[in-house]
Design a protein around this nucleic acid. Structure first.
Lengths: 147, 147
DNA sequence: GTGAAAAGTGGGTAATTGTGGGGAATATTT
DNA sequence: AAATATTCCCCACAATTACCCACTTTTCAC
């Protein structure tokens, strides 16, 4: 399970050096074979390959006759790219994904359980600020849940 | 299962170079024999031939006494064309289909499980943006589903 | 503090992939 | 039958990517 975040830079070729704290786990769990895809909130999701596969399967098994579902399938599956870590523990982020998430240089990588998330630094700050007032409009799932 | 997308150009003759990452799979699964057809969302669908056949069978087995069904049959089956990859891994897109999907030069090809989708670049961006507010009106199928 | 190891950074080169077009062969139209 | 357009097969150039090596900075042990 991934957690914690780091601020780091993409290099001039659009490569991302995976922080050492995640690297070992990734090598063990999937030999550096990852899937990167787009998230509706305009960040990128990074999964070990075998974590991703059931998700894609599930997604594509949904009915095609609902516009929201189709849009979700197209986004998540359509953007999902296989990538592999190079000898130095880096991955090359495909241009389409970099564009989608507005990543240029300064990014934040954050562990989120079974996946990592990749944010443009600016967007990450806004996102952090957005939690705001937790009191209102919390979904009912959270009834009785305490931190 | 296909996934991931590329931005590429049709050449002046209306040919599409299938990206290398899909090419091998297509050669293995159907020796480059494909079926291209129209999608209600004004993109094109590209199936390996043996993936398409059961879909067409299923479609034509539906009752003809429903206007929506008839429209769907006419679109999908009526536009379906056989195409083959040439030596360089390219397919020639029939003019009718190119017109239907509004493809001129800049297109996006996206893997969607058992098929590929072909979009005019502009339309693809709009489509990506459409996921928008995930919170509202998600189909009940997605209850309890998490990424 | 000093040295050794690990992590982060940058770039060169070769191979693969994407793109464009020439021209022969085939089909379509007049 | 001639003229026109379409499709196919080929080659050539351009762009991108994979793979490798080298250097700098940080971290940690002693």
């Amino acid at each position: 399970m991934f957690h914690g975040s780091s601020r780091l830079n993409l290099d001039s070729k659009g490569r991302l050096a995976i922080p050492a704290k995640y690297r070992d786990e990734l090598v063990v769990s999937c030999e550096g074979r990852l899937v990167v895809t787009a998230d509706p909130d305009h960040c990128l999701l990074v999964y070990p390959r075998q974590e991703w596969e059931p998700i894609q399967k599930k997604l594509m098994s949904l009915s095609s006759f609902n516009a929201k579902t189709r849009a979700l399938q197209r986004l998540l599956v359509g953007y999902a790219e296989d990538v592999e870590m190079d000898g130095a523990g880096r991955i090359l982020l495909p241009g389409t994904l970099r564009t989608y998430a507005g990543l240029d240089k300064s990014v934040v990588i954050a562990g989120q359980g079974n996946r990592l998330e990749l944010w443009d630094e600016e967007k990450w700050s806004q996102q952090s600020a957005m939690v705001g007032s937790l009191e209102e409009d919390m979904p009912s799932e959270l009834e009785g849940f305490s931190l």
